[in-house]
Amino acid sequence: MPQENLPACPLCGRPIPPEAKQSLHHLIPRLRGGKGGPTVLLHQICHNEIHATLTETELARDFHTIEALQAHPRLAKFIKWVQKRPPAFHSKTPGKRRQR
């Protein structure tokens, strides 16, 4: 399938090829009232980084839009890094999980 016909990850903007690890992200976490709410299809690595960076409470309160997620300093740095990787790239989440 040509890359222009592939869904794009709203966080990093890279296409999501069928062979890539992918995941649905609830913009408002299910445990914070988002069950049945809006979801977005992300690369698995992008989804992992969101949850390694922010708590469920922070996601529900302040980071329930793609724009807010992209503006977070750690996620912005991650996005800049991952945009240089091929669309199907996946690895363990870089860096340490944020201390709670």
Rank of each mutant, 00 (worst) to 15 (best):
P94Q: 01
A8C: 12
Q3N: 04
L31D: 15
G36T: 00
C46Y: 08
I16E: 04
R61G: 00
P10H: 13
S23R: 14
N48C: 15
I16P: 13
I16C: 09
P10K: 04
K35R: 15
E67Y: 01
Q22K: 10
H26N: 12
E4W: 08
Q99L: 11
L41P: 05
W81R: 04
L27H: 01
F63R: 06
A60F: 05
R85S: 04
K96Y: 07
Q3W: 09
G33A: 02
P7R: 12
C12W: 14
K92R: 13
E19L: 05
Q22G: 06
E49I: 07
H47K: 02
R74K: 15
K77C: 09
R74V: 12
P7V: 13
L31F: 02
G95I: 10
R61S: 04
I66S: 06
K96V: 03
C9L: 11
A88G: 10
T93G: 07
T53P: 11
N48V: 09
K77R: 12
R32N: 00
C12Q: 09
I45A: 14
K92L: 08
E67N: 05
P15H: 01
H47I: 00
S91R: 04
Q83N: 12
I16H: 10
T93M: 02
R74Q: 11
T53V: 03
P87C: 08
K77P: 00
G36V: 01
I79M: 02
V40G: 05
L41I: 11
G36P: 04
R30C: 01
F78M: 11
E56T: 02
